[in-house]
Write a protein that binds this DNA or RNA. Structure first.
Length: 529
RNA sequence: GCGGGUAUAGCUUAGUGGUAAAGCUCCAGCCUUCCAAGCUGAUUACGCGGGUUCGAUUCCCGCUACCCGCUCCA
């Protein structure tokens, strides 16, 4: 659980500002006022996100023999999500009590009969200039008389009073009318207050297949996937049959998922369109719990490698009752964001629930035949499911630093620096001629840039003083800057031996070292792995 | 979804019932031999839609987005 609940909105605002200013993250459709819960990644955000995904893919797929990749379609057959439980189980219509704001499931409200007292508005004896013209209806039943109905109505209007000191009792109800109703579910059983219209709370995006699809034809319905996992389960057999894998083995997928979140929050943390990095690791039933612990460990190491140290992560061993019913064990990996401790990834032991459900719904066997023991069984699965955008945000939050460089003279200087791990930094190295009005320096710098460019993302910058250029690169997290100076050209008297060497300036320490251009590429590649 | 807050240039802020100021950034030029130097110049803003008004960025209403607290999160 959250060990640290303190938040730092000011820090978050600075991070959001930098992300926009430097082109990491923009609001989607900002030109038109924004689209709720959607975000676009700018040039540097795109590089950063790509690097995170590539690193994840390299570590989890390419550098392992026992995990293979999948890239499933986003449009999802409704049968898949019916089998998984996404369609049926989680679309309860809900309504809210207009007085107490309690949220109720519409299908669980007991129908009631009685007299409905309706009012068109209200005024207050002690506030001449105040009035409210919102209508409200209260159901009066055998248990609740008309006085109670009026009392509830006054409670309703009390919330609109301009001054909380004014007594609700002095409210005068306007336009009272009555009507009889039978078996209505439009009123709160607890107090008779009117309820809002029932609203569907299914969080999936629904769409129609086919350009001329009939809206009412249930067969044309498809969904944007709410998680990448389901296509893995559905393709599990094909992958097994085509990839010559044996248990235990995993299928990995990186891709977009969509949830119609009721309230997107916290910058890009909870958005309606997001990217997941998931592995479904299939195993024998007896290995599930052990592998869950192993995966937790492996995933924690991953975050350390991309710049989120172990001690900044919180592992929540999700207790009984809070886990999904099919999960024997679930760990949440959480990070202390400036807006609170929040989940980055879930490592869940899901048993045979998913394959079992799809086997049942499709009528096709998803059993695995173990050659050694001659047993047939539905494999169990361990699922490390990471949020890509959340990881990116955690990386940004962790990297953001304002370093105080105030000098002895007292001149204030704050250096903003993004301390990205070199392996995921958007730009790996910036090549900077010391001066731009000396053609030899510029030419040499272009030469060095061209040397490195086929191997990494290189920036070239000749504008403004070199100190300013260093700071620009600090702010976007470029780990190394290479400066081309007069010594590089061999023009410095008494330092001719420095010809064809450059200085490398380190982002984090601001220290410099000199290195031969011929050694530059291997030097960098070693540090960018 | 509820309650509260906010919305002026890329960023951070100022200001006004008569269409707006500044710092930083960015761009161009000059200068510049290593940590946001200096000089000159340029572009750029009142979230959207209504209403009141001779006139609205300013007042009112609605919408949208973002932030905070609840709620929700298969």
């Amino acid at each position: 659980m959250a060990e640290r609940t303190d938040t730092d909105p000011a820090r978050m605002e600075k991070i959001v500002s930098l992300c926009k200013r430097r082109g990491f993250i923009f609001q989607s459709a900002e030109l038109y006022g924004g689209l709720n819960g959607c975000w676009d990644f700018g040039p540097l955000g795109t590089e950063l996100k790509r690097n995170i995904k590539d690193y994840w893919w390299r570590k989890n797929v390419q550098e392992r023999e026992d995990i293979v990749g999948l890239d499933g379609s986003i449009l999802t057959h409704q049968a898949v999500l019916t089998a998984s439980g996404h369609v049926g189980g989680f679309s309860d219509p809900m309504c809210d009590c207009l007085v107490t704001k309690a949220r109720l499931r519409a299908d669980q409200i007991e129908p009631a009969s009685g007299t409905v007292y309706s009012f068109t508005g209200a005024t207050h004896k002690q506030a001449d200039d105040w009035s409210c013209d919102r209508p409200i209806s209260i159901l009066s039943t055998a248990e609740r008389d008309e006085h109670k109905a009026r009392k509830v109505a006054k409670e309703y209007y009390a919330q609109f009073l301009p001054d909380k000191q004014l007594s609700p009792k002095k409210i005068e109800l306007q336009g009272e009318t009555t009507a009889e109703v039978t078996d209505s579910i439009g009123f709160n059983p607890a107090n008779g207050a009117q309820l809002t219209e029932a609203r569907e709370f299914n969080l999936m995006f629904k769409t129609q297949m086919g350009a001329s699809a009939d809206e009412n034809d249930p067969n044309s319905v498809a969904y944007l996937r709410p998680e990448t996992a389901q296509s893995i389960f559905v393709q599990y057999k094909n992958v097994l049959d085509s990839s010559r894998q044996k248990l235990p083995f995993g299928i990995a997928q990186i891709g977009k998922s969509f949830r119609n979140e009721i309230n997107p929050r916290n910058y890009i943390f909870r958005s309606r369109e997001f990217e997941q990095m998931e592995i479904e690791f299939f195993c024998k039933p007896e290995d599930g719990l052990r592998l869950t612990d192993e995966w937790l460990e492996r995933r924690l190491n991953f975050y350390a490698e991309i710049g989120v140290p172990r001690e900044k992560l919180h592992v929540l061993d999700v207790p009984d009752g809070e886990r999904a019913h099919y999960s024997e064990k679930t760990y949440d990996i959480e990070y202390a964001f400036p807006f609170g401790v929040q989940e980055l990834e879930g490592v869940a032991y899901r048993g045979s629930y998913d394959l079992g459900k799809h086997q049942e719904a499709s009528g096709k066997s998803l059993e695995y035949f173990d050659e050694e023991t001659k047993e047939k069984f539905v494999p169990h699965v361990v699922e490390p499911s990471a949020g890509c955008d959340r990881t990116l945000l955690a990386v940004i939050c962790e990297a953001f630093d304002e370093e105080d460089l105030t000098k002895d003279g007292g001149k204030k200087d704050v250096r903003t620096v993004m301390r990205f791990a070199p392996c995921i930094a958007p730009i790996k190295v910036a090549v900077l001629p010391l001066l731009k009005n000396k053609q030899e320096l510029v030419d040499k710098a272009h030469e060095v840039k061209n040397l490195l460019q086929p191997f990494m993302n290189v920036a070239y910058d000749e504008a403004a003083a070199i100190g300013r250029r260093y700071r620009r690169q600090d702010e976007i997290g470029t780990p190394f800057c290479v400066a081309i100076d007069f010594e590089t050209l061999g023009l410095e008297e008494g330092k001719e031996e420095l010809k064809d060497t450059v200085t490398i300036r380190h982002r984090d320490s601001m220290e410099q070292e000199r290195i031969a251009i011929s050694d530059l590429l291997p030097w960098l590649l070693e540090r960018l792995r």
